[in-house]
């Protein structure tokens, strides 16, 4: 597994432009446009519903280089949100009806102002989610107190664990990641995360380790709970089953493995009306490391900014609630099968 990001390697798909060339060329593989699918069911243009979540990407730096990462995150990425931009986020949140703050990265904890930001956010009385990759807790002694820090601020921890075995997890996330993830989960369990009777919520994120769609979320959750409990005495609250979207490294994997056309066809064939009506971009705004606003984290990586005022310094929830959501072919990933969002499946 390479430890350099696509950007560092100056690969074609390391740039949003390179990815858009591939995604925009749906005619050559005979696929309908996502917009036309929405138009056929009366959902185009796609408009927001109640915006209650702000997902903030505090930087692309990460201690892992996962094969499927849509951020192309890794140790060599230097894009990091500054404290000034964080302050703009705090100002925007304070004056809005946003209820949930979803912190992501990269490994968000690697931002030097992460803890300051969480402390400030927790004073606003909002639900705070941190998308923790687990291994960061063991990556360096300076991160070993993260579980206690999460507990102190009642953080809802959401962590990726693509499978309940080392083979598939390590194939996607790097050698030794499964073992470290289990150790981190043990630590989180020990202080109460994922345990019944505590309010410390620990969710796991499942995403397929290959070119296939996730199955039923409830069934997968049962399987994960059994395997992790029986094999490692690990407990957690919910499993969120996510579909891999054809963006960045996963897009490159699909192309290099010869699976791109078939995967895209599968996404289109599995288009689900009910999932389309509930896609996450209708309820959230995504903030990039440099303060620009996007309809979701995937649009952020493709640099498809929201329509209208598009920086956190000019955050206007009313205006954002009346925008048209920017769409492209990767959006089929959120509407396939039971649907997919940062909160898991969108329908049964």
């Amino acid at each position: 597994m390479s430890f350099a990001t696509l950007k560092r390697q100056e690969r074609r798909l390391g740039s949003p432009e390179g990815q858009m060339v591939v995604l925009d060329d749906s005619d050559s593989i005979c696929l309908p446009s996502f917009s036309s699918k929405l138009e056929a069911i009366g959902l185009y243009p796609l408009l927001p519903m109640r915006i209650d979540t702000l997902q903030i990407n505090v930087g692309k730096m990460c201690n892992q280089v996962c094969k499927h990462c849509h951020v192309d995150a890794g140790p060599d990425r230097k894009e990091i949100m500054t404290r000034e931009t964080m302050q703009l986020c705090l100002d925007a949140i304070q004056e809005s009806s946003i209820e949930t703050i979803d912190l992501t990265g990269g490994a968000p904890e690697m931002n030097p102002d992460f803890r300051w930001f969480v402390e400030e956010l927790s004073q606003l009385g909002k639900e705070i989610i941190v998308r923790c990759n687990l291994t960061i807790i063991l990556a360096n002694p300076k991160y070993s107190d993260l579980p206690a820090f999460y507990k102190k601020h009642n953080i809802h921890v959401v962590s990726s664990l693509p499978y309940f075995s080392a083979k598939r997890t390590d194939a996607q996330r790097g050698d030794g990641v499964f073992e470290k993830s289990i150790k981190a989960l043990e630590i989180l369990n020990t202080i109460g995360y994922g345990k019944q009777g505590t309010n410390l919520k620990l969710d796991l994120v499942y995403n397929p380790s290959g070119a296939f769609l996730p199955g039923n979320q409830a069934d997968l959750e049962l399987e994960f709970k059994k395997k992790l409990k029986d094999g490692y005495s690990i407990e957690f609250d919910n499993l969120l089953a996510l579909t891999n979207l054809p963006v960045s490294r996963y897009l490159e994997y699909l192309i290099n493995s010869g699976n791109y056309e078939e995967y895209m066809s599968e996404l289109v064939s599995a288009f689900n009306l009910s999932a389309a009506a509930s896609v996450m971009c209708r309820n959230m705004i995504s903030v990039g490391w440099n303060g620009y606003l996007y309809d979701c984290d995937f649009n952020q990586m493709l640099e498809l900014k929201v329509q209208g005022a598009n920086h956190i310094s000019e955050f206007d929830l009313n205006q954002l609630a009346n925008r048209e959501i920017v769409l492209n072919q990767h959006c089929f990933g959120c509407t396939a099968g039971t649907g997919s969002s940062c909160g898991g499946s969108l329908s049964d």
Binding site: Y163, Y206, F212, L213, G215, D219, E223, F224
Partner: peptide, 11 residues
């Protein structure tokens, strides 16, 4: 095979 993979069946 695809169906089994989707449903979390291992190799």
């Amino acid at each position: 095979t695809s169906s089994c993979l989707s449903k979390g069946v291992d190799e």
